[in-house]
Design a binder for these strands. Structure first.
Lengths: 226, 226
DNA sequence: GTCTATATGCAGATAGAC
DNA sequence: GTCTATCTGCATATAGAC
């Protein structure tokens, strides 16, 4: 088994990055900016200043490095969501922090979406990656829908179909990441703010309850309180 | 100049596809399902049963074929939008038909979004393609925002920031296409219906005005008329 | 662990026959 | 217009020295 395998590798000591980690970081950047086929192992090795042959010491093949890189990125994203969940009791706070998180980490999240897109539309197929991607989106929707359900149960939010609304928000976030890649001068932070405001409006949570959104009701005309 | 160039090629006779057209169609399919680097000219030539050398009779290079393919796809999409616009006077009808159009043509539109994503995140760069992609998104947003403005002016819609709302819908559509690529079993038609219903709700247009959306108010809980 | 050197194969592209 | 044959270069991957 290759040293880069998520299952087989000994737990990293957390104090310093291993070479395999360095390679996966460099690979993530390159795979995200371009795509699997056009990134060469020479590019990846040179990005951290080592010889191409070294990659084959840590990984079985280019595909194996790709698999490990995607797994690594998704696992990190899932860890991040877990931390987020444990940090909040209040559904409004959790949802607001989820939006804030997506704004602050928009760059790595965009990379993650890009690499998942490339993976999906390639003939490369790893059950472990399929499973992690599903987990990622399930967790994202779950954070949102659980919070929405709790807010509705507490009477803070207006009634709504929590699952569908969560999927809507999650899908829109994908759209924001895609638009940020395709469209020149797309304003990602404004788009996230618009999505957040729309959700609160839909759930009947006023802006005054939530200082972070104050004065950013973009989708509604100014001066009309409808 | 290559025969495949949009500017230089003589107008096609519209009655039968030229070889160049056949090649671009095959290339669109392949580039959309995979990506530029992993699709070989052998794949493209074999897809229509000709020899690889023939590609270089019609196009200067693989990149030139890619450019022509993207240009061709975007021009077709723009033509489609133009037809859509000319077909409707009523803003509600136009917006509804825009949604219907996106549902009916979801497959080619998904391919277009995929190929634009690949183009954007490749180091290949053609001013003509940049310009067409910008035109495409401008036209999409313009169809929506113009209709919204007219509806508001007529008093049919509630007041809203037409440009931002149009961008929101357009961005969400990108998200739907991305989600359809990444997520297994994503329900594209339900997602389009949800987006449409949300827009009408936001603009205060009741479902009864519009037979096509009746009974599909997914984002709101059943039984609650809020 | 990290390197040099190299084998192998294939993709993009051209020349030229028909 | 379409093909056969071939050149060229590069990318993945391996063997083996240090």
């Amino acid at each position: 088994m290759a040293a880069g395998s998520l299952q087989g590798r000994k737990q990293q000591t957390n104090e310093h990055f291993t070479r395999a980690d360095e390679l996966m970081w460099a690979a993530l950047d390159l795979f995200a900016e371009r795509d699997f086929a056009s990134v060469t192992i020479k590019d990846i090795a040179h990005a951290i200043g080592v010889n191409t042959a070294l990659i084959y010491y840590y990984f079985e093949s280019k595909e194996d490095l790709f698999r490990a890189t995607v797994e690594n990125a998704v696992v990190r994203a899932l860890d991040n969501y877990k931390t987020l969940r444990e940090k909040h009791d209040d559904p409004v706070d959790l949802i607001n922090d989820w939006f804030y998180n997506n704004l602050q980490l928009s760059d790595p999240i965009r990379k993650l979406v890009k690499i998942m897109l490339d993976y999906s539309s390639s003939r490369i197929n790893f059950p472990s990656v399929d499973c992690l991607i599903k987990q990622f989106y399930d967790e994202e929707c779950s954070i949102l829908s659980d919070s929405i359900r709790r807010g509705i149960a507490a009477g803070t939010f207006k009634p709504a179909d929590a699952d569908r609304l969560a999927l809507f928000v999650s899908t829109h976030l994908d759209g924001i990441m895609a638009a940020a890649m395709i469209r020149p001068q797309f304003d990602l932070s404004a788009a996230i703010a618009d999505l957040r405001d729309l959700l609160w409006q839909h759930l009947g949570v006023s802006e005054s309850t939530n200082p972070r959104t104050a004065g950013s009701d973009h989708l509604r005309s100014p001066g009309t309180g409808i």
